[in-house]
Structures are given as C-alpha cells and as structure tokens.
C-alpha cells in the first residue's frame, strides 16, 4: 500500500515541483508546423524563452481555446477562427495576418510530370485528397480551384477528406490517395522534400488564404505576458518573414 501511494505521488508529478521557466505555448495550425519549428528555434536563440508547440487543426484548437485551453498565442490557418475567438472575448487584441498560404497539387507518383488540376478528371486517378473544406481553408481553396477549372463535378466522387492539412498530406504521402491538395509549406518541409511531384495551383483560381495569429487572453495576467507578446511580435519581424517565404508563404 505504501508503495502504491508513493507511485501515485511520483506519477502525478507532485514529487517534482520545478521552477516555472519562461515558456510560451503556441497553438499551431497543422500547415504551419514545419515553419513554426524553424521560427521557434530562431526565437529561442534570440530570447531566453522556451516555445512549446501544440499542433492540431485550427478548428480543434479554436474549440479548445474556447473551453479555456492554456495557450498563449494561436497561429491559425485562416482569419475566421481567430476572429471568432476575438469576438467571443478570448483575446483583447485584434488578430493580425502574418502570411498568405500557397496551395499546391501533389502526388507520390513521380512519373506524373504533367500534373495539373485538369488531370484529376483522368480515370487513372481514383482518389483525390483535400482538407475538409468546411473547416480548413486549404480545403476550401482546393474546391474553388477545381470549380474554376470546371472539373469539380467530375472529381467530386473521388474526393477524400483529411481532418486537417496534416492528415491530408499523410494520405498523399502514403500513396493512399493518388493525388491531393496541400499547403506548399508541407512539400517544402525537410520531412517531405523530394517526395513525389508537386505543382503550384494558379493563385488566381482561389481566394487568398490569409492566415492570422492572435494573442490570447490566457497569457495576459500571468508572468508569461511579456514573452507571449514578444513571440507574437516576432511573427511579424523581418527575420520571421524571411522564414515564412522560405516555406512558400507570401508575406508583405
């Protein structure tokens, strides 16, 4: 019995109450995770603040933030979710657009040199992956692009929906889907670089994917206020912009 009690204490972490160090928890939309890794390293280099990433889809993160998740900054894949949080009092500062995303069409089949949206109607392509257009901006953009190309009706029955851009990319990268739409930041990431074949989707074929970040109220009355604000500002710095560009985002 004594040992059980001891075990419980150790496992619940009551045993080791460590000093709180400066740490910012960043809720990160799936498409931003690779670039965020680099931003995090850069920020940690120039300040003595630790950055912790929580990666998920923007919709899920928003639901969690609304229910009081302990995040300090939310880096979303769109502007709608951060606005929603701001409107509901989850943040006192209006969200700011940090970058614009680029949609790409990607396939694992490296022989598909003439990959294009119109090819998706081909019989050889049986499954096309995209992020859920109801919740993910890249999915919405993909639908717009297919509609613009006039092939949406033909491709509709081939569509499979990832719950986030991460799952969509996984469907494509594992070859489970023959082709699919994802963010350029994914195909440029160190993990995926050189895998298969991808092309940019004509940016006039879809509405700009504006991605906004928001400083969350959670950070405000804690000792994390300053580092959180610093990180938020860092997202709009010249250094950060250069990193965003490297991953295929466009920034002003």
């Amino acid at each position: 019995m004594k040992y059980i009690a001891l075990l419980v204490i150790v496992l619940t972490g009551l045993g080791g109450c460590t000093e709180p160090n400066k740490k910012v928890v960043v809720a990160t939309a799936a498409n931003v995770q690779y670039v965020m890794q680099e931003l995090k390293e850069e920020f940690e280099k120039e300040s003595d603040t630790e950055v912790e990433m929580v990666v998920s889809s923007s919709g899920k993160l928003t639901a969690q933030i609304r229910e009081g998740a302990p995040f300090d900054v939310f880096v979303s894949a769109d502007t709608q979710y951060p606005n929603e949080i701001h409107k509901n009092g989850g943040s006192d500062v209006a969200p700011r657009v940090y970058a614009r995303g680029t949609l790409v069409l990607w396939t694992l089949d490296s022989t598909a040199i003439d990959l294009s949206i119109n090819r998706l109607a081909d019989k050889s392509i049986r499954k096309v992956a995209l992020a859920n257009p109801r919740t993910a901006p890249y999915g919405e953009a993909a639908v717009q692009a297919m509609e613009k190309a006039g092939i949406y009706e033909q491709v509709k029955d081939k569509l499979v929906y990832g719950e986030s851009i991460a799952q969509t990319s996984q469907y494509i990268a594992s070859g489970a889907a023959d082709a699919g739409f994802t963010a350029m930041s994914v195909v440029l990431s160190p993990e995926m670089k050189g895998k298969g074949h991808w092309v940019k989707v004509d940016s006039s074929a879809y509405q700009p994917i504006e991605q906004a970040a928001v400083l969350l109220r959670h950070s405000e009355d804690s000792f994390k206020a300053q580092p959180s604000r610093d990180f938020f500002e860092f997202l709009f710095s010249g250094k950060a912009k250069a990193i965003f560009r490297k991953y295929g985002y466009s920034v002003e």
């Binding site: 919709g59 899920k60 928003t62 639901a63 609304r66 929603e84 859920n132 109801r134 919740t135 719950e163």
Partner: peptide
C-alpha cells in the same frame, strides 16, 4: 460528431 465540433 468530431466534424461538427471542429466546425464549432
């Protein structure tokens, strides 16, 4: 259910 939660 998961989808609807995600779509708020």
């Amino acid at each position: 259910i998961y989808n609807e939660v995600e779509a708020l």
